[in-house]
Nucleic acid binder design. Structure first.
Lengths: 144, 144
DNA sequence: CCTCTAAATAGAAATGATTTCGTTTTAGAA
DNA sequence: TTCTAAAACGAAATCATTTCTATTTAGAGG
């Protein structure tokens, strides 16, 4: 567990600090995505000192390194999700309970090539995310 | 011209006020996407009084009504684009010159159904956007 | 084990895009 | 033309996120 995360951090060229490991542990245990502040509130107890900016900074770095993934939320706040799927794929995120489900890569690579060929441009990244309500939430009609 | 926009506003159940028409005109003339503040700065001259909140509010309402479309930008600021394509489609946005190119609908509808079927959830919306450099910008190596 | 240095963190303060609020104005139906 | 709900004003507030400088620490090298 710890060792896995430490290894992942090293592989990303980042020091395996206790706080980073704690962030990864907590997010991995999380059933869905979480906000920086939520994580901070829960992690504060485990450290005598832990700044909110540290959580922000690490989440961003970890997401940039591909260790975590970021959720694009309609309310434009930041949310992160621990995703161990190393294949190229996308996410279906529940706006109610925050569950995240993997979506296998679809035809996007082909689309990228198509765009490159037709317009001569270069696709640097793409965003594909399905928003909705997962099975449970759709039944209950819950909203968050 | 004006009439088209007035009609579109009416169709969306919105009053055709001069400011809304001006926003639509300006965005239609724009070659790419623009931020609320940029639009406000340019529109201020045409009105003796025009508040920035008014521009924000209208852009949001117009985008919610589908008259405009919103760009998802890595810097998390708001940008809007005038898009007359009424078919379901997506966008390729240039991060450098802000040009927006249409992408015809790909297999996403099928993917939505697949997700619904497999997980029992309900897909409310999806985000698909390709980010990159358009032909011209890729050649020049420009960045903004 | 120590030492040392670049990297990481603290925490208060700043930032700045976006939103809110109470008031005033206006589009457009009657 | 009148009237009312919708729209706009604009100053002020919000608040998530970032910056900044001083302090601490992981971990490579001895």
């Amino acid at each position: 567990m710890d060792q896995r995360h430490a290894t992942a951090l090293k592989a990303a060229g980042m020091k395996a600090t206790p706080k980073r490991l704690a962030i990864l542990e907590m997010l991995e245990a999380e059933p869905g995505y979480a906000s920086p502040e939520e994580l901070w509130k829960r992690l504060k107890d485990r450290f005598d000192r832990l700044g909110l900016p540290t959580v922000y900074r690490n989440l961003e770095e970890l997401s940039a390194s591909g260790v975590l993934s970021k959720v694009i939320h309609p309310n434009r706040q930041l949310y992160y999700y621990f995703c161990s799927n190393r294949e190229h794929h996308h996410h279906f995120v529940c706006l109610s309970c925050r569950k995240v489900e993997d979506i296998p890569a679809c035809g996007i690579e082909a689309l990228e090539q198509e765009v490159s060929k037709r317009n001569g441009g270069k696709v640097l990244s793409h965003i594909l995310q399905l928003n909705g309500l997962c099975g449970g939430c759709a039944d209950n009609g819950e909203k968050r």
